[in-house]
Computed example of a mutant assay.
Amino acid sequence: MARTRRQPSERILIAGAVEDLPEIHRMLVDLPENAYGQVFVEVALDEQVRILPAPPRVTVTWLVRTTRPSIVPSLCFADHGEALAAAVIGWASEWCVTDCEPRTSVWIGCSDSPWAEQARAAVQLELADAGQQVVVEYGG
């Protein structure tokens, strides 16, 4: 997602893990006050949750892995990127519908997680199927 002021009609989705917090913070600072959308941040522990400078219409949701079970039977807690991917895919199934917003900008970090890679692909497909302009950028 380019660091430019966004039009009020553009919806945003920002999703990343604790290692992406500096970039997420920078993106949120660059958003105008009338921006709207969703931010998901996956962290390992409650102690990593902090306040981010989100505009009033941008919701920040913290996904704490140690409080979530994994779908992988051998793991006690959610795997790195697992909770984030589930949240992003859930968001896409709810928000990527035909005749909704004309444009959605998406930035997904957590670049070292195969779970996040699956979420990126799902969001791109959902947006395209809904006839929306697809702008999905990856964190690195």
Rank of each mutant, 00 (worst) to 15 (best):
Q132K: 13
V41D: 04
E10W: 15
E117P: 10
L28I: 05
L63M: 05
G109E: 03
E137M: 01
G109H: 05
E117M: 08
T67V: 14
L63F: 09
G139R: 10
G90L: 08
A130Q: 08
E94Y: 05
A116L: 00
Y138K: 10
A44W: 13
H25K: 09
R120N: 05
G109D: 04
L31F: 08
P53T: 02
W62M: 03
D20K: 02
A130P: 02
I24M: 05
D79M: 12
N34P: 05
S113D: 12
L21P: 00
R5N: 08
C76T: 15
A92V: 04
L84N: 01
P69S: 15
G131I: 05
R50H: 09
V136G: 04
A54C: 06
I108K: 12
H25W: 13
C96Q: 01
S111W: 06
H80K: 13
V58C: 06
V72W: 03
C96W: 01
D99E: 15
M1G: 14
T4F: 09
V49D: 06
Q48L: 08
P56V: 07
F77G: 04
L127P: 00
A116N: 00
I108V: 12
A92F: 01
T61G: 04
I108N: 04
P73F: 04
P102W: 14
I108R: 09
A35S: 14
Q133W: 12
P22R: 15
P8R: 07
P56S: 13
A121H: 06
V58I: 03
A2F: 13
S74V: 13
A15C: 08
L63V: 03
A116G: 01
H80N: 11
D20N: 06
I108A: 02
D129A: 05
F77R: 12
D99Q: 15
G109R: 02
S113Y: 06
V41K: 12
P32R: 09
R68I: 02
T4M: 11
S70D: 02
L75D: 06
L84P: 00
A85D: 03
M1Y: 08
R65Y: 09
E42P: 00
V123Y: 02
L28H: 06
R5F: 11
A44C: 06
V43Y: 11
A44R: 15
D20P: 03
P102M: 15
E23Y: 07
L21I: 12
C110S: 13
E47S: 15
F40E: 07
D20Y: 08
A83N: 03
A92G: 01
